[in-house]
């Protein structure tokens, strides 16, 4: 069983600049050819302030290897079971976001091969004015062994 006292643990806040290259790399990796991710004019004519990040971009911002490592999960690997993202506004190139992750919950669920640990991480991103930009909630299944 995962340590329940992990619940509430928070990462440091990090300031992240949303780079055009990062947006393009994600769009390319997904095979998403929508020009709003790569062409400034197309993005603006669709109503975005600049290149629009793909909808799953907050998933990139939520990656915090150091924080994850600090949770001491041992050799167990994480398998993403569920993810949800709320948006305060679209994320665009040039955004400077303050991002912070916390352990929202630790659960034990019955599985076919015994109990499985579940780790729920929440990450929030705020803009330069402190305004809410996004929140992700990711449910990870921990594989034993």
């Amino acid at each position: 069983m995962l340590d329940k006292t992990l619940i509430g643990r928070e990462s440091e806040s990090t300031l992240v600049e949303v780079e055009r290259g990062a947006i393009r790399r994600l769009a390319d990796a997904v095979g998403d050819a929508n020009p709003v991710h790569t062409d400034e004019a197309a993005a603006r004519s669709a109503g975005f302030a600049s290149l629009a990040a793909p909808l799953t971009f907050p998933g990139v911002l939520a990656q915090n290897e150091r924080f994850r490592h600090s949770l001491d999960l041992g050799t167990r690997s994480l398998l993403l079971g569920e993810a949800s993202i709320e948006y305060g506004r679209p994320i665009v190139a040039g955004d400077r976001l303050t991002v912070k992750t916390k352990v929202a919950d630790v659960q034990e669920r019955a599985g076919t091969s015994g109990a499985t640990d579940v780790l729920i991480l929440e990450t929030e991103g705020r803009g330069a004015e402190g305004e809410f930009v996004f929140r992700t909630r990711e449910t990870y299944i921990l594989r034993r062994g």
Partner: peptide
């Protein structure tokens, strides 16, 4: 799983043509 979610994101972004997304959830 996030890659599959990315495919879903591409699908809706294409369709919405700039409309603002409030929420996006997926279960793998």
């Amino acid at each position: 799983g996030m890659l599959a979610m990315g495919f879903l994101g591409e699908l809706v972004t294409d369709w919405l043509r700039g409309a603002r997304v409030r929420r996006f959830g997926a279960r793998f």
